[in-house]
Every structure is written in structure tokens, then in C-alpha cells.
Design a protein around this nucleic acid. Structure first.
Lengths: 255, 255
DNA sequence: CGGCATGTTGACCATATTCAATTGAAGTGG
DNA sequence: CCACTTCAATTGAATATGGTCAACATGCCG
């Protein structure tokens, strides 16, 4: 068993933007940027600020807007009645948050600020209006939703079939890829409890696994600073293939 | 707790289709049916048959079609290089499979037949053509993709934060809801190993947990026949809320 | 009949959780 | 400046949940 295709199954690098099967659109174009421009055109979208930890959008309430992140990070989470929580996604500057609730009356997941944030708020009314006006916009929105789905596909695989160390390594590689720092260091402003709720673990075990990764010379993480010591080994160990990551339009400061 | 709306959620189900926040679309219309009609109009879509277990679409190959299920079930799966596999979704008759790969050159997940199946194949070329022609179609496709994403959101929560028994109960309730049998019995033509790969467990443990659920008087499952003995208790125990399930257009035989 | 796939059960083991104690850093208020 | 609190992280010990290995039963099908 076990085929052995991926790990670099592309043309060259994470986005061999050369070949394009006819009729198939490349994910390499920055759809988010185009959608952002379309949604913000007119420049009258209200701006909103949130403090660290603030609830940007509660769960269960009628959904009525999407957000374009101007600065800061967000995360989405699903809370169970007994308090357990599963974090679903981390959202970075430039991303459009909330498209995935298209067609849903009330989101099941809540949205919180990860650090102080600046957002543009675009009402669904306005969004619909612009989508009706532009088939291309509709299409790009569909692709962005498909990309959110694809991220979940990968995370589902992590939670279902990867052990704690693999999940951690995989997630850190993912964030590294999304943030595109110049070096192998980047800031990840989250606690270990956050990582735990993201990866289906406990904070205690996250602490242990990070120590282990450090001992193995793979990752050094302290005080929200991540240093990937041996990316190639880590990628192999975690079965990380960035093929599922679209270009995330993020401007970021390394270290 | 535990609402009690659906089970016949068509006319006035989980979301009293009377009220509709302006600009917000209800998920209660059967978008899948409308998209199906649009894609199959002309009736020249090639039909394809697959035997049980056949690969409908391999992973890693250029994606070039979506499928409308005429009869039989499909499932999608992600396979890790070392053979571990995570099943992602079960697809039922009437569903359109492959929309979630919109914008992606090569799907990471493979698609297999669960029992003998009959499909209509619609090329992406054709799909794009019709989406360009109809903004409404684009929009409905976006909603269907959003729904796939929503299913993942729920399953992610299961894998991350629910224990084995809860995952099993939750999944069975979900299938019960999607299949809409007349009674509390339905056929689920999968093995315990299948359930295991779906829920991030081992087949041995699935066996044990099913025995436990039987002992508790909650679920009786044998030879692919599921009997939900105490739905209300089960729902409460598993935190199952069908709100995330759109109306799945499925015709099914109970028992 | 024999082979294969599936499910069940037991014994043992591993991974991860729970509980608890400790440390260090950061913030508050006297 | 110094208690005092709070929160995050670390570590150890005990525990639990689920995994591994293996044996066996059953049903199906050639």
C-alpha cells in the first residue's frame, strides 16, 4: 500500500504557475486581493477596532457582515455547551472573513480578535449586490470559500490521523508558509492553550511536545517566537505539503 | 435542552422559512436540486458507472470534472504517504461532488465508490460555462461549497474535542438526519474500519464503542443496519444539533 | 472445503489527559 | 519599591482513553 506521489508533486515549488490546464483556473492568482478591492471600492466600508480577545462576531446570532482584516489577527472557534472548544482557523491581515457562512442564517462558530485588530465591515447586503453585478466576483468568492474548505480538509487529516508532535509541526509549518517571513523565524502571538484548542490537545501536552521538538532540534518556540531549526526534516516528519495553501496575502515582520 | 425541529425540515423545519433577514438567503431552498437541474439540462452529460470500491477520481491528478450522483454513494479520502487515511465525506444520491475543488488544480483527496454507483460527469469546462451564463448558478455553487465547508467545521469539532463514543453517535445522527428514513432505522453500508477512518479511531475501538452504545440502549448497529434506540438521549449525549445540515436531497429506503 | 473479509474480545501498551505543585513574567495597588 | 495577584509555562506522578497485537468467530464466496 501507500502510494508515494506528493511532497513536491507540483511543477516546481508550491505554485508552479506555469502550467494551467485549459478551463481550470489557477489558485495562484491572488483572488483575495481582487475580492478585497471589489468590496472596498468606494471606500465607505465602516471600520471597526477590537481589543485583544474581543468577540468580533458571536456564534448563533444572525450573520450580517463579512470582515476584511486591515491589521491584526482573528480566529474562529466552535464552543461546546460544556466548555470544550475547538479553534477552527486563524485569519491574517488581508483575508476576508465570513464568506464561508454564505447561505447560512446563523454561524455556528464565533470570531475573536487575536490581539488588537482593525477591520473593514462589509454587509452581506452590499456583498450580494456586488456579486450580482459581477460574475467574476462571485466566482472568486466561490474560490475563496473553496480554499477555506481545503484548509479544513488538511486540518481534519491532522486531527484524525496525525499524532501530537506531527500536528504541532504541521501547524507551525503552515503558519510559517502563510506568513512568509524572510527567515525561519516568525512571531506567533498565541498561547500554548490556544495551540491545544486548535489541534485537539491539552496545553500541558503541547508544552511537552514543544520541549520534545526542541530536544530533537526541529523547532524552538518560546514566548510566541517560533524558530524552525530544520525545515526539511520537519516537513518530512509531519508530511507537510504546502500544496493546499493558497497565497495568503500577508505582510509580516519576521522575528 | 435539545431542540426538536427537523426530521421533516422541508416545509417549516429548522429555520422557519418565513422570516428572512433582508439580504440573507435561507439555506432551506434546495440549492443542490437547482444546480443539478442547471448542470444536467441538455441531458448530454456522460454517465459513468463504478463498482464498489472503484476509484472515481484519484488524488493528485489534474481535476477536470464534477459528478452528480444518480445512484449509490461515494466517499472522499485523504491518504498519507505511510498508509494512514482520513475519510473526509460521504456523498449521497443527488449531491454534486467536486465543487469544493473549485480553483484547485489537483485535488488532494481521492474519491471512491461506496457500493456500485451511477454518476453523471460534468466537465469543469461546461460548469464554468454555465456559471458564467448565470450569476444565480454561481451563487448557488458558492453556497454548496460553503455547505461542504460547514460540514467540515462540525467534523473538525468532533475529531478535536469529542471522545470516541460521542464521535460515533454524532456521526450516526448526522447520517440519520441526512438520509431521512421514515423510522429510526437506516442502512449504512460501511464497515467499522470505514467508520474508524472517518472518525480518527481504529476499527477495534469502533467495535468496542458500538458495543458500549448498545449496552447503554442508545444505538444498535449490526451488519450495516443502524437502529437509533433513544434519539433524544443520544442527541444530548453527543451535542448533536442538526443546524449545520442543509437539506440533503436524498431518496432513501429505510431499514 | 478453504480463503478472505469483517467483527469481537482479551491482554498489554502508548499516547495523551488529569491533577497538582512550581516557576517566572507581567500587572496592580498600596 | 514591594507585596500580591494572575496568567502562562513547565514538570512529575497517576490515570484514562484509545491503540496494538493476537486469537477466534462468523459469514460469504469461489
Amino acid at each position: 500500500m501507500a502510494e508515494r506521489p506528493p511532497i513536491e508533486a507540483r511543477g516546481g515549488g508550491p505554485s508552479g504557475d506555469a502550467v494551467d490546464t485549459p478551463g481550470a483556473r489557477s489558485r495562484d492568482r491572488d483572488h483575495a486581493a481582487e475580492v478585497r478591492r471589489a468590496l472596498l471600492a468606494g471606500d465607505d466600508a465602516p471600520r471597526r477596532s477590537f481589543d485583544d480577545g474581543a468577540t468580533v462576531r458571536p456564534a448563533g446570532q444572525p450573520r450580517n457582515a463579512v470582515f476584511v482584516i486591515e491589521a491584526g489577527w482573528l480566529y474562529s472557534a466552535r464552543i461546546l455547551p460544556d466548555g470544550r472548544r475547538q479553534l477552527l482557523e486563524v485569519w491574517l491581515p488581508g483575508q476576508i472573513v465570513g464568506l464561508g457562512e454564505h447561505g447560512l442564517q446563523r454561524p455556528l462558530s464565533a470570531l475573536y480578535a487575536l490581539g488588537p485588530t482593525e477591520l473593514h465591515e462589509i454587509s452581506w447586503e452590499r456583498l450580494r449586490e456586488r456579486m450580482c453585478a459581477s460574475g467574476e466576483l462571485s466566482d472568486q468568492v466561490a474560490m475563496l470559500i473553496a480554499h477555506e474548505r481545503l484548509m479544513f480538509e488538511e486540518r481534519l487529516t491532522s486531527l484524525g490521523r496525525r499524532d501530537a508532535a506531527e500536528r504541532l509541526g504541521h501547524f507551525l509549518l503552515e503558519m510559517h508558509h502563510r506568513l512568509r517571513p524572510s527567515a525561519n523565524r516568525f512571531r506567533l502571538p498565541v498561547t500554548q492553550a490556544f495551540l491545544a484548542d486548535m489541534l485537539g490537545l491539552t496545553s500541558v501536552h503541547v508544552s511537552r511536545m514543544l520541549s520534545q521538538l526542541r530536544d530533537e532540534g526541529l523547532v524552538d518556540m518560546n514566548d510566541q517566537g517560533v524558530h524552525l531549526l530544520d525545515i526539511d526534516t520537519l516537513r518530512r516528519a509531519c508530511d507537510f505539503d504546502p500544496g493546499y495553501l493558497a497565497v495568503d496575502p500577508v505582510c509580516n515582520d519576521a522575528d
